[in-house]
Write a protein that binds this DNA or RNA. Structure first.
Lengths: 117, 117
DNA sequence: CAAACTGTTCAACTATTATCGAACCATGAG
DNA sequence: CTCATGGTTCGATAATAGTTGAACAGTTTG
């Protein structure tokens, strides 16, 4: 039914701390994940980087950092989990931040190997 | 005269990396410094936190982190140094980011002991 | 030139964070 | 029930970042 256990803790919107959010986003892998989530919720496995082959535990750790900072929500759904961006909460608390950070890398920024396809 | 030596290296505007900037701003002390600089350039000593008593070397280290990320500029001026926010470069490269980050803490955020005066 | 002043750099230490295999734990399928 | 699946948690180790005193380097002043 709906009473799924295995719920993970999430900070209340009012408790979000800017420096924690900035820190969570200051890692290239986590920023990448966040940007991907901007297009819609994903299950954990789908958060893997493009040609990525990072261990499950490492990915889980990054998601934990994002979750504890209040950047993403992680809810159990069947035997999977859906990760989603807490866009409303972030926009409410830190207006403009997400927009600035989600902006695709500008020309010339050595952010990631550009994937053309 | 004007030919001061002792110039410190600063990254070119085009080389600014978003994750580095976010990281530099993810420390409460550095964010505080950045916010103060938003109101105008300061000499290094004036970057001290309010009731602050942190050692010179620690402060210098934080300023170095900010400088290397491209957040601030640090230029020699007589026997002092002026630290200033690289607002134009940041706005140019990451539009909206600075505005979002400089926004005074919203109601309820446990960012700093509220100083009322 | 010598002393005082402002701030950086160095070096050592501590603390936090990242990484990753292995164990574990619900859930859904057979 | 038993097994495979998807993902978290644990524990250990490596890597990075923060803190700080002391040494050092220009600048100005006397």
């Amino acid at each position: 039914m709906s009473g799924s256990s295995r719920e993970l803790p999430h900070p209340d919107p009012a408790d979000l701390v800017l420096t924690d959010v900035l820190f969570a986003l200051s890692d290239p892998a986590r920023l990448e994940i966040t940007r991907r989530l901007a297009e819609g919720p994903l299950e954990v496995a789908a958060c893997q980087p493009v040609g990525g082959d990072i261990p499950k535990s490492t990915l889980s750790h990054h998601l934990k950092t994002l979750r504890e900072a209040g950047v993403v929500r992680n809810v159990p759904h069947g035997r999977r989990r859906y990760v989603s961006l807490r866009r409303d909460d972030l926009d409410d608390r830190f207006p403009g931040l997400l927009a600035a950070v989600l902006t695709p890398a500008l020309a010339g920024e050595p952010q990631d190997p550009l994937r053309l396809e």
